[in-house]
Structure formats: C-alpha cells, structure tokens
Computed example of a mutant assay.
Amino acid sequence: MTVTLITGANKGIGFETAEQLLELGHVVYIGARDVERGEKAAAAIGTRFVQLDVTDDASVNDALATIEAAESRLDVLVNNAGVLASGDVDGPLALHAFDTNAVGIVRVTEAALPLLRKSSNPTVVNVSSSAGSFWAVTSPDRPEFHLSSALYSASKAAATMLTVQYAKSQPGIKFNALEPGTTATDMTAAFGIGRAPEESAKAVVRLATLDADGPTGTFQDENGELPW
C-alpha cells in the first residue's frame, strides 16, 4: 500500500485529499497541530493521525518518527499546511507567514527525506499558489492581479522555488508545486469565494498519484503546467 502524509489535513483541501487518497487505497496520515481536531478528522474518514505543527521542529520529527516506526517508509508527502497571514504587515506577521508557508515545507521535507528514499515511487506535492507567481500577479486578466496579500504571495513564491530546488537536489524524488484553484475554506471565508474543497483536492490527488516517470520540478494547476 502507498503510505501518505498530508500536513494541515484536519479540514479543507487537506482533509478532502486525505479522503480521496484513502478511497484509492492509500494508508493516509492526517497531520494537524490540534490533537482533538486532528483525531476527530481522522476518525471521521478512517485515516491515521499524527500531531504535526510545521512550525515546530520537535513536533515534525516526532510525527515522522511515528510513521517510520509503523510503516518504515513514506511514499507520498503533501505539504498542504498554510496560512493567509492577512492584516497589517509587520515583522512578526511576516515571520509567521514564511515560517508556516515556506520554512514549514523545509522542516517536514527534510524530516521525511530518509523515509521517502525508501519508497519505490517517492512523491512530494507542495500546495502553493499562483498568488506567488510573478506572471499571474502582473497579468491584468488574471484574478491574482487584483489580490493584495504581500506576505501570502511572497511566501508562496518561496514555496514554489523550494519545489524547483528540491527537484534538482533530489533527482530520485518527484517534487511538484500546485495551484489548487480558488477554494472555499476557512482561509478564504472572509472573501466569500471559491469552489468546494473536494474539487480542488482532485488536483492534489493527480500530482500525488503520478507514475514513477511523471514530471518533477513543475508548477501546475488542474489543467497542467503554469508559468511563474
């Protein structure tokens, strides 16, 4: 069976991705900061749970140690956890945005690499955003052109660049970044926009289930590769 870890998966796109991959036969671990919410989400669909706060090294290391003890390997990692970081821009908020959206990817990926190397088809999906695409935010016909969210956009640009650099440094593991589409989640509730999370999760699932010869080092949405 394919062993999969999804961060920030107690709700939204992460939760729907967990449910869809479970239906495909994956052994799915839901990672979440809050134990009560994470355990409740895992119980609701029959997945496994690990307490995982992407901003805390000890939490990340403990989560991967739990998976190693139970499974001895990891086949798929979905770095989904993220924050919008809206509000008045200042240093602490910037640190929070980058710590979660970019440094969090580094923490979890570095902890997961030894287990991913034990897989016959290791795959990493980084849930990024076209809000971090220079092409999208400078194109008047794109919705990102009208979005003003400096810290979210900048930290997601970092997430996409990390994807490319990991693809180059880890040629035996597929790394791809995803623009999941505008989705109605807690993060976007203030805007009142977006489609159902299960629709966006389909795009995550597509990249999480690539064949061994699938692409790596790309930035994609549900229709294929995007410029950025």
Rank of each mutant, 00 (worst) to 15 (best):
K11S: 15
G12S: 07
I13R: 02
F15M: 09
E23S: 12
E23C: 04
G31R: 07
A32K: 00
D34N: 15
K40H: 08
A43H: 02
A44R: 12
T47A: 15
L52T: 07
D53L: 02
A58P: 01
V60K: 06
T66N: 06
I67R: 01
I67P: 03
D75Y: 01
L77T: 04
G82T: 05
G87N: 00
G87V: 01
D88T: 14
D88Q: 14
H96V: 03
D99A: 14
A102C: 11
G104S: 11
N121W: 04
P122Y: 04
V124E: 05
S128Y: 09
G132P: 08
S139Y: 09
S139Q: 12
S139G: 03
R142L: 13
H146Y: 14
S149M: 13
Y152Q: 09
S155I: 03
S155H: 07
A157I: 05
T160Y: 03
M161D: 07
T163V: 09
A167M: 01
A167L: 01
K168W: 10
P171L: 00
I173N: 02
K174P: 03
K174S: 13
T183M: 11
T183C: 12
D186R: 14
M187Q: 12
T188F: 13
T188E: 11
G192N: 06
E199V: 14
S200R: 02
L207V: 06
A208I: 06
L210V: 11
L210F: 09
G214I: 08
G217D: 02
Q220N: 15
L226W: 09
L226E: 06
L226R: 09
W228D: 11
